[in-house]
Amino acid sequence: MPEVMKLEDIRKNFGSIQALRGVDLTVNGGEVLALLGDNGAGKSTLIKTISGIYPIDGGQITVAGKPVRINSPREAMDLGIETIHQDTSLAPDLSIARNLFLGREPVTIPALGVFAPLDLKRLKAEASKLLRRVGISKNLDADAPVNSLSGGERQSIAISRAMQFSASLIILDEPTNNLGVEETNGVLRFIREVRDAGHSVIYITHNIHHVMNVADRAVVMRHGRIVADLMIRDTDLLSLEAIIMGADAATLAAGLKHGKQH
């Protein structure tokens, strides 16, 4: 599989705190990569640098073979990187259709700039088509406001939006955090479908069962570095858990000391 994105020696500091201390990571095409690690390990910071929220302080990002700088969420999207945050990805008062196209609205008279009229017909037609394609259209009306949907439906809509713009890399930041069991299973199933459709997925979670269930590869971060990178088929739940907890004694001790300070 060709590589979708390559990170080399990515560094990010917040004042004197080194949040990322040289991260090297290659994301391959069509894989679900689970990004694991304790709170404060640097997962969120890493994701925010890839999705254009934080500028990096050092290192090189390569997307589809080209070195790039990602300075804004918009630039990340234009590079085919779509990020779905926990539960902040949709505007609840807007309709499903308007959410799907937020920031990339189809308009009829583009010359009018931001005052250009939305192409409401196309908006609705494409939204309905998308809802059908991803199999969540059963009784969803594209004109219904997002605040009338369940949490699982909302996440599915957010993920569909990423697929619709043919993102090569979809980043999911704890997408099942506030969901029930049934809805979580729906979202996990959906993640597999996304991968089967050819998109790469970075999936951040604390739930190791989900990782075994849905991911192809697990990458573990600790103290701003990647400490393990393994294929799911080569590991099992217990070993993975041990690695996340800090398998070697030295880091375990450091983790305990760190814990005491809080």
């Binding site: 505007a91 008062d93 807007l94 308007r98 959410n99 196209f101 937020l102 920031g103 609205e105 308009v107 009018l112 931001v114 005052f115 250009a116 009229p117 939305l118």
Partner: peptide, 9 residues
């Protein structure tokens, strides 16, 4: 208008 979608969002 497009900007109306933004205002609501």
């Amino acid at each position: 208008a497009k900007v109306g979608n933004w205002i609501t969002a």
